[in-house]
Design a protein around this nucleic acid. Structure first.
Lengths: 242, 242
DNA sequence: TAGTGGTCTAGACCACGAC
DNA sequence: TCGTGGTCTAGACCACTAT
């Protein structure tokens, strides 16, 4: 294991990159356990402590989940704990109910300027657009327009969406092998237009949160761009600053 | 060093608590270096590795800052890098300019229901209310109303605010010895009322972000509650989801 | 050159979960 | 009882900063 990388990178980071690579290649699937620290140490010819430090960082990044006495697992969006990782919307009256995703529409198009820039694909490349509603206890709260690369999400149709009973990201993970790692949201305040007011059942002109999200998979590759309008009549966007 | 705490807590966490305590007591002041890992290890009669793990966690929590070859320093809001830690507002046109805080008003009052709940003080306890404007390059972008416990911020006046040339939190830190550790923000969309429209120079009814923030010091003690209205005409609220 | 944090190792023991 | 991750130690060496 060379330590003389062009810009010096400690051994544990090289190990981290190797584990990441195995993860990316699908050697271990979401929800499954990865080999024990001892096994990995032997495989990479380093000490257990070095593997541990690599895994520590990956656990901090929500890529892996440690379970004492059992093993280390590949994080999965199927895990119910992952549900609110990217959804920062909370009912004002503490009532933390399960959101429900209602697909409204799904069609194919060609990437415009914005979509191509956000998704890092060519202008005119095939994309898929999904419109969906997010409900908390029968009440519509978010209307989303989601832009996906047609290449990656080949085979995504209304039927697939209808038939899925969970979060979108868990669908992406199981159906397309795409793991969402991190996201960036840009939030502004806008007035509800006709469409939004009908979908969210609020008066036209009602102030709404406009939330633009770009979601990244391994290697900081953007794979999803979505524009959401959030009704904050009975919910707020909760953010922890550390 | 007992390891048989009621609910088991590893040694490095006990060390962390001790360091935290020294920090809180003011033994080392913001911006100053704390003793070397070896010295702390000797002082607490543990190995350097154990101290290191404690410090690692505190560095991850932005309480300490490590500088290789030099030492470990107490984090400070005077550090320019801390400026955008709690301010997630970014110009739409990349132009990352320095915000300027303009105090408008500062008066004494008694805590109402909301303020007393948010600040964890008694109903009717003395509080100080600050109104201030945040400008980016002469343009007003945020109007804030800030609620502070009169006990803690005894001596805070308009004059003190006027005479300070930096962030509020850096004032709090140097003048009142209060270190802001973490915060929680609740964001909603609202329409600009008369006051806000005048302060932010937008039309009445313009959608604005309403950002309510509770800020905590050591021991998760809430010490500041603020309500801000953000104009998102030329800025957006940026949030990283990990 | 001296002192600091950063990395790496090897081994011992503890806590937890499953069998 | 066994295997896993979690903690703790002690020592060696590397990288950065200052003098």
């Amino acid at each position: 294991m060379s330590r003389e990388a062009p810009t010096f990178s400690p051994l544990y980071r090289q190990i981290k990159a190797l584990i990441l690579q195995a993860l990316e290649s699908g050697e271990w699937r979401p929800g499954q356990a990865i080999p024990s620290e001892q096994e990995l140490a032997a495989r990479f010819s380093v000490s257990q402590g070095t593997v541990r430090k690599a895994i520590d960082e990956m656990a901090a990044e929500n890529l892996l989940v440690r379970k004492q006495g059992k093993g280390t697992y590949v994080a999965s969006h199927n895990d119910p704990r992952a549900l609110f990782r990217f959804l920062r919307l909370v009912p004002i009256d503490g009532d933390l109910s399960h959101p429900q995703s209602v697909p409204l529409d799904c069609w194919r198009a060609k990437a415009g300027q914005e979509a191509s820039r956000m998704l890092g694909i060519e202008l005119g490349a095939p994309i898929i657009i999904v419109r969906r509603l997010l409900k908390f206890a029968t009440r519509p709260v978010v209307i989303d327009e989601i832009y996906l690369s047609g290449e990656i999400f080949h085979g995504l149709t209304s039927e697939v969406l209808q038939g899925w009973n969970g979060s979108l990201y868990s669908l992406f993970e199981t159906r397309f092998g795409l793991r969402m790692i991190r996201a960036q949201e840009r939030i502004r305040a806008v007035a509800a237009d006709r469409n939004a007011s009908e979908a969210l059942k609020v008066a036209e002109g009602t102030p709404l949160l406009s939330v633009e999200r770009v979601t990244y998979t391994y290697g900081d590759r953007p794979v999803e761009w979505r524009r959401g309008l959030y009704s904050t009549a009975e919910h707020f966007y909760l953010n922890e600053l550390n």
